[in-house]
Simulated scan of single mutants.
Amino acid sequence: MQLEMFQIDAFTDRLFGGNSAAVVPLQTWLPDALMQSIAVENNLSETAFFVRQPDGTYAIRWFSPLSEIAFCGHATLASAFVLFRQDSAVKKVTFTAPAVGSIDVAQRADGRITMRFPLRAPEPAERIPPALLKGLSIAPSEVLVSDQAWFALYENEQSVREVVPVPELLATLGPLDVVVTAPGLDHDFVSRYFWPANGGLEDPVTGSIHAGLAPLWAVRLGKSDLVAQQASARSGIVYCQVMPKHVLVSGDAVLFLQGIIQLPD
């Protein structure tokens, strides 16, 4: 059996930046174990699989090298990029996933892709786990939490760039991940994302967490349109617009690789 696969750099307009995702379009679902094995073999932050549904939407699933992920932004952007590239007449698609429902995606005239995510603002943490505080080399000034991650807030961008995670401690916080964030110097806010329990030490660019970061900083900065930088080694730019119940998360993408997966018949 042969499967077409694409590798896309998402949230960047240049190769070798942003976050890489593998995209595997399917006619029907493969066994879960096989999709996980493909993700392990790819060894990228995520591998996305999608299947077109009778109503024209696409059911989508995301796998890290460790496990299936409930919600992934950059691999959704990458999947939409593949669909738009395959048919230039298509400018809008809808993905569906149990954790987030429908994700409407549109491509602008300049090629930038906009995804509509549910608003997932964090709340103040009633209890801060000791592993979180011990797992970050710089103590945060404030801690919030969402269904996806612990939010460690800092006063400045330098702290976000300099903080060193202790993966063995942060891994004990699973299934929640950890995002560190602060106001930015050249961007509205910056962040880094650590997820040793679910995928790896540091995710290069995490689209999904901006459904929580954007509403957080929109309130604190007094603006609904924000430009964010994820300050990983690869770096990436995320454009956000906060609405009453949704967050529009936008970014660029570039094709790195197109090939064929060879599987036994």
Rank of each mutant, 00 (worst) to 15 (best):
D252E: 07
E68R: 10
L216Q: 15
L77R: 01
D177V: 06
S64I: 00
Y239F: 03
A70Q: 13
A22P: 06
R61K: 07
F49H: 06
T76L: 03
E126F: 06
A59Y: 01
E162Q: 14
Q258C: 11
V249N: 03
Q258D: 03
L83F: 00
S146E: 06
T76G: 10
S67F: 00
R85S: 14
L66G: 09
V93N: 12
R116G: 11
G111P: 05
A233C: 11
G56N: 08
G184F: 02
F95I: 10
S235Q: 15
V40G: 12
E4N: 15
L83G: 10
L136F: 01
I260A: 13
F63C: 11
S146M: 09
I260Y: 11
P130I: 05
T114V: 15
F50Y: 08
V163D: 03
T114G: 10
D252R: 09
M35I: 00
V227E: 14
D13S: 14
V93M: 10
A152M: 04
G135H: 04
A228D: 07
A75I: 03
F71Q: 09
F16R: 12
Q148E: 07
A48L: 02
G18S: 11
Y58G: 04
K134H: 08
V160T: 06
D186G: 11
L15T: 13
K245E: 15
S137H: 02
L119F: 01
F6I: 00
F81L: 04
F71E: 08
F117Q: 06
L3H: 09
L3E: 09
V40R: 15
G222H: 05
I209N: 09
G135L: 05
V160R: 01
H187C: 12
V163G: 08
D9S: 07
L255M: 14
L26V: 07
V227R: 14
Q36I: 00
A106H: 05
L136E: 05
H74R: 07
I69C: 05
M115N: 06
A106G: 11
V247I: 01
Q107Y: 01
Y154W: 01
A253Q: 02
F16V: 04
S67R: 13
R14F: 01
L77G: 08
G18I: 04
S64Q: 08
D203K: 07
M5E: 07
V247G: 07
Y154E: 05
M1G: 10
L30I: 08
E41T: 08
P244W: 01
Y239R: 10
T172L: 11
L173G: 10
R127H: 10
R85I: 07
E4L: 14
D87E: 12
L133A: 09
V179N: 09
P31K: 03
T114S: 14
T76E: 04
E123A: 15
Q229D: 11
A131W: 00
S191Y: 02
T94V: 15
K223I: 04
A171F: 06
R112I: 13
V93Q: 09
F71K: 07
V166D: 14
I260T: 15
A131S: 13
V205H: 07
L226V: 06
S79W: 00
E162C: 07
T114A: 15
I69D: 02
L169W: 00
L26S: 06
A21S: 15
L255V: 09
P25R: 04
Y239S: 13
L34Y: 04
K245W: 01
V160N: 03
V164S: 11
D55M: 12
L44C: 13
